[in-house]
């Protein structure tokens, strides 16, 4: 019960704070520093390579973020069930990375689908940095 209350409080505080991608990045920066004292900032280049790198999934397929979101994040993607995914790049789709709960929900799902593990704060920050920077 206490844990639940704390989790809720945390969710609300993240929600209240993160209205822009920059504020979200700040949140992840805090976590990344905790994870790794040598953390020295997010990198859009690392994020770009993270986005494009294909990984061998245990189901035998090669997958990356680009598999569904397409190699160019300014374009619409497509889910495996044929549904359109709006572009990831902020410049085309300013709604991206403005809702902390939504961002965490999709990192939670898609990291497990693509990497078969959770993403760490550094990876999440690099990813957002890349997609915010795309011109």
């Amino acid at each position: 019960m206490r844990n639940q209350t704390m989790l809720l409080a945390l969710l609300f505080s993240i929600n209240a704070l993160a209205a822009t991608p920059q504020e979200l990045l700040k949140q992840y920066e805090g976590q990344a520093k905790q994870d790794n004292p040598a953390f020295s900032g997010f990198s859009a280049e690392r994020g770009a390579s993270f986005y494009k790198t294909e990984r061998n999934h245990s189901n035998g397929q090669k997958v990356s973020c680009a598999t569904c979101h397409t190699a160019d994040p300014r374009h619409q993607g497509k889910t495996r069930a044929n549904k359109v995914i709006e572009p990831m790049a902020s410049i085309i789709n300013p709604q991206r990375f403005t809702d902390a709960a939504k961002v965490e929900k999709w990192f939670g799902r898609n990291c497990k689908d693509v990497l078969e593990r959770a993403c760490n704060a550094q990876e999440k920050g690099d990813y957002i940095q890349y997609l915010v920077n795309v011109k």
Partner: peptide, 10 residues
Amino acid sequence: LDKHFGENAS
């Protein structure tokens, strides 16, 4: 939902 037709939809 964590294994929803091969995808994580938790």
